[in-house]
Design a protein around this nucleic acid. Structure first.
Length: 574
RNA sequence: CGGGGCGUAGCGUAGUGGCUAGCGCGCCUGCUUUGGGAGCAGGAGACCGGGAGUUCGAAUCUCCCCGCCCCGACCA
């Protein structure tokens, strides 16, 4: 039984000055966590209990699915990460250090390499597969900007699993098993979440989905279709646009459009001099970018910005993407800044990408590649032909769902899980093979699957808290029942202690506020702040043989006969 | 890394050149109180983020450094 008289806990009456988001404020105020450095937190007893509860739900669901728990060190030698090039590619986000002999080490940000090597050292036959193993472990990433308390830290607890299969069908099956296990896990954690299509991105591999907990303070943006349930990360959102009707589009016509280097100025001149009714969406924006040192050209409708992150994710294999600077324009004198059009792209030799919204058969107003000149009736398929189509334009609320055409909404969320089909990227690099039934070596295919365990503490706090404080689902709370003894006589304190013992004997965890010197008001405030699901007040009702049972989440209060208290509480918790 | 804000006791803060750095919460002692963050009295607790400088005099002004928060870039 957790007794408040001795519990290592100090709640704060004021919000800490360095906390802004609700989960951070409340976890600090209620005495769950304390900041040590940017993105690095200590856990006090209440925090540890909650974290362990979440860990245990995750662990049970993993074990239930047949995955086996292992454990790796956080402190790792450089070698394996050198082979997969991540020692370099991970860049400044990797915590690196040296031992006394000058050997390079790192604090593991994720463990694909180590898991792959572990399987390699134990297994060598197709008969050993499939295999899924996992760990719950502390990860280290030197984030450029840790934020929102425990939501994005530099040290955090993650459950990471890895699946090993003989072939693609096996990988698909392991992936689905993980997906199902994640669904039951997050359901049990009492979270609201969406499963969202994601781009595999830097991890390589093909298929990837994120589990996103909707939350205004979340840092991920995703697209949701209210009609069919289609959900995608904004990077992964697909644009479906019908081809334009090229029939009857007049010949391309060059126009005199002085002083129109921007879309707004161009639309104004078009409406003034070349007939009305033009809007930015009739124009074509031709953005010059540098992708890993190579100039590329991207077409998007004039009323949309290029979403660099989205573009980069969809240009597979591009590590660095930036917009043209003056120096880049200097290298391409044929490009007239502000008046670039795709008509001469072939001549320039620069790869021309088009957003799907710039569909075949659509015609546009674009730059004419001459200062103060534009062209209209510039037809895709006749006047220019993109080398490739790529998702580049920003996604907006009201865009069409690629599945059903309904207007999508855009929402924010916290990423609490991510599942990947990695394929053979790591097994190939580290040479993880097994013998097939013909005695031939075959490269194993892998998946990786993560749950942000410490982040889930914050995400659940965000989703469940109210103006009074935290408000945990019963399986996660530090204790299921929070008993408050009030008054100055011994009776309520003795009764409360007895009630607590009875509940614990029934397997119900109890926190008992047995402080003799704290006023009732303080105890009520603390109970609400700490957020255990059931609060029982043992005090003045005792003269009638009653205790008061409150539901933290709803605020509902009921007097219950002391003799019925344990059974009534047990019923509430079942 | 760019932009903005901030750093005074465990927490929240006042103090913008001049007495011993003030207040609230929390903490300690005593008395009173005990169903919504109690009252009175007494007390402990601060190298005012660090360093250098300006000045008769610096929490306060100047420079450098460190740290923290927010927005952006970045983020398996």
């Amino acid at each position: 039984m957790l007794k408040m008289s001795t519990l290592f806990l100090r709640t704060l009456r004021d919000d800490p000055a360095d906390a802004e988001v609700a989960s951070h404020r409340l976890l600090v105020r209620a005495g769950y966590i304390r900041r040590i450095a940017a993105g690095i937190y200590s856990w006090l007893p209440l925090g540890v209990l909650t974290l362990r509860n979440i860990e245990n739900v995750v662990r049970q669901e993993m074990d239930q699915a047949g995955f086996q728990e292992v454990h790796f060190p956080a402190l790792l030698p450089r070698e394996a990460y050198e082979i997969t090039h991540r020692w370099k590619e991970y860049g400044p986000s990797l915590f690196r250090l040296q031992d006394r002999k000058g050997g390079d080490y790192l604090l593991g940000p994720t463990h694909e390499e180590m898991f792959t090597l572990m399987v390699k050292s134990e297994y060598s036959s197709y008969k050993d597969l499939p295999l899924s193993i996992y760990q719950i472990q502390t990860k280290y990433r030197d984030e450029a900007r840790p934020r929102s308390g425990i939501i994005r830290g530099r040290e955090f607890v993650m459950k990471d699993s890895y699946s090993f299969d003989f072939d693609d069908a096996g990988l698909e099956e392991s992936y689905q098993k993980h997906r199902d296990a994640y669904i039951s896990c997050f359901n049990r954690l009492g979270m609201k979440y969406n499963i969202v299509k994601a781009v595999a991105g830097a991890m390589g591999g093909s298929k990837s989905e994120e589990f996103l907990a909707p939350c205004a303070t979340g840092e991920d943006t995703y697209v949701l279709c209210p009609a069919c349930g289609y959900a995608a990360n904004v990077e992964a959102m697909q644009t479906k646009v019908a081809p334009g009707n090229a029939q009857g589009v007049p010949a391309m016509e060059e126009l005199d459009t002085p002083h129109t280097p921007t879309i707004d100025s161009l639309v104004a001149v078009m409406n003034a001099n070349f007939g009305g009714g033009y809007t930015a969406s009739d124009t074509l924006k031709n953005i010059m970018l540098v992708a890993d040192g190579k100039a590329i050209s991207v077409l998007v409708p004039g009323d949309r910005e290029v979403d660099l992150k989205r573009l980069q994710e969809n240009l597979s294999g591009v590590h660095e993407l930036r917009v043209f600077e003056e120096a880049d324009f200097a290298q391409y004198p044929a490009l007239v800044k502000g008046y670039i059009g795709p008509q001469d792209a072939l001549k320039s030799g620069i790869t021309l990408y088009a957003d799907p919204r710039v569909a075949p058969g659509t015609s546009w107003i674009s730059g004419a590649n001459k200062k103060d000149r534009h062209a209209r009736f510039v037809l895709n398929g006749r006047d220019f032909i993109p080398d490739a189509y790529v998702e580049a334009a920003e996604v907006r609320t009201g865009d069409s769902c690629p599945e059903c055409g309904t207007d999508v909404i855009i929402d924010r969320a916290i990423e609490i899980g991510h599942i990947f089909q990695l394929g053979r990227k790591y097994s190939q690099a580290l040479n993880l093979t097994v013998l097939d039934s013909n005695g031939k070596s075959q490269t194993v295919t892998m998946g990786s699957y993560g749950i942000g365990v410490s982040r889930a503490v914050a995400a659940i706090a965000e989703q469940t808290c109210d103006e009074l404080g935290l408000n945990w689902p019963k399986e996660l709370a530090p204790a299921k029942v929070h008993i408050v003894a009030t008054g100055k006589d011994d009776l309520p304190f003795d009764t409360a202690l007895k009630l607590g013992s009875d509940l614990e004997a029934m397997g119900i965890s109890v926190m008992l506020d047995d402080r003799r010197d704290a006023s009732a008001g303080v105890k009520f405030k603390d109970a609400e702040l700490i957020g255990n699901p059931i609060i029982v007040v043992v005090g003045r009702g005792l003269v009638d043989g009653n205790v008061e049972v409150r539901i933290r989440a709803t605020g509902v209060k009921n007097d219950v006969a002391l003799t019925q208290a344990t059974s009534s509480i047990a019923a509430l918790l079942s």
